[in-house]
Simulated assay, not measured.
Amino acid sequence: MTALTDTALTTGLKALLETTSTVTVRPRYEGSNICTWIGFKHVNYMVEEAVLDHFRTAGLPARGLYEEFGLGLDIVDLDTRILHAFHMDDTAQAEVVPHTKEDDRVIGFRVTVTVERDGEPVKAVTSKVKVSLRPDGYLQSADEPPALLSRFVVPRLGAHLEAAEAPSVAVTPADNTSLAQGRGTTASDDPVLAQLTQGENAFGWKWRIPYPYCHFTERLQMSGYLRQMEEVVDLFLADRGISIKTLLDDRRWIPVVPHSRVQILDEALMEEDLYTVYTVEEVFKDFTYTSRMDCYVVRDGRLVQTETGRITHGYAVIENRKDWSLVNFDERVVNAFKGGPAQS
């Protein structure tokens, strides 16, 4: 790998902030869980790969930024709309357009993913992405970041946000996420989750952050939060009596996601306990429902919010191995979303 000289940095930063790039992307096999359709998490993975390729094309690859300057490339905001479903083995074109204003402290992009349907290209995904550069905090590198990049360097993830500091909430955590606990614990068994979900139409889940969800040796990365969002939805639906398999077996219904957003507010570290609260916000005309996901850790006896995000769901009925169509919610499903009994 070629060293990033001052000249290369100047040229690369100009390309990064001013030049559009295009790359061919393909969904991963792992993301095809129901028939051959691809879930929202893996659609977001394609967006992430397009952004990483844009950095490579500009001559500022994530590996080079880290090995040369000790800067970790972190996606800190990912807002994605899915307009057409992806299938296994689809090949798509992702266009990455720089979108960074002069006073922005993050590197911004607009990503459009196009796929062929019936011989014609269709816009399948649009996404807004923001990136921060975070100095390595584990190896304690003494190197100063290059001046050209310093505008986008943050001491911790979320530091670019100028929102008012949230009130500090004192909590007393319980030691209930040992390895024997498996997938962790829920609000009914945890005092912090019980406090976070009290009076809300919400589901709480706590578990230990595993290393495969992290990067740069210590911190939870964007793809880890996407996995967290997918997992908490699965647990929420099971808790409300309408698990994924239950509705698949009863009526061949599957959840579909037209919109998701994840925004990192602070850092969550490997093997910390992550408190995830999934709150139903609105059921819209019995056709879609929106929920918010908020994640916290406890440090020095106080809650620190590390993430907030939103996801919109609908349901589709499987018609055959290739086709599905959207359906309206019935009373059983609406009751479950609103916190009432899930009637059979």
Rank of each mutant, 00 (worst) to 15 (best):
A124D: 11
Q140D: 14
V96F: 02
D53W: 07
A163L: 03
E67H: 04
A92D: 04
D77S: 13
G158I: 06
I34S: 09
R81D: 13
G72D: 12
C35Q: 15
Q140L: 14
Y66Q: 10
R81I: 01
G119R: 11
V122K: 15
L78S: 02
T91F: 04
G108A: 07
A62T: 06
M88N: 05
V106S: 11
V115D: 08
W37H: 08
E49C: 06
L60V: 09
K130L: 09
A50I: 00
P146G: 11
E48F: 06
L161H: 15
F40C: 01
P121W: 05
R105A: 05
D77Q: 05
E30V: 15
A62E: 09
I38R: 07
S150F: 00
G59N: 01
G59A: 08
L148Q: 12
K123A: 06
H54W: 03
F69E: 10
P145E: 12
F69V: 07
V122T: 14
E67Y: 08
G70C: 10
V125H: 11
L157W: 08
K41N: 12
K123L: 15
T126P: 09
F40A: 13
F152I: 01
P173R: 12
T57V: 14
K123G: 09
V47H: 00
E68M: 07
G59E: 03
T57S: 05
D79H: 15
G64Q: 01
R105P: 00
V115E: 08
L139D: 12
H54S: 01
M46Y: 07
G119E: 07
V97K: 15
R134S: 04
L78I: 09
R110N: 15
E68H: 05
L148R: 13
Y45I: 03
S150N: 11
P121H: 05
V115G: 06
T126R: 14
V76P: 04
V129E: 05
G59M: 11
A170W: 04
L149M: 10
H42T: 03
P145I: 09
P98D: 03
S168L: 08
H84P: 01
D53M: 04
P135K: 03
Y45S: 01
T177K: 05
A58F: 02
G158N: 01
E116G: 06
G108V: 04
G119A: 10
I82C: 08
L71N: 09
T80M: 02
L71M: 11
D77C: 08
E49N: 02
H87G: 06
E48R: 04
I38A: 06
H84F: 14
V169C: 00
I34A: 10
E102H: 11
L83G: 11
S178L: 14
A62W: 03
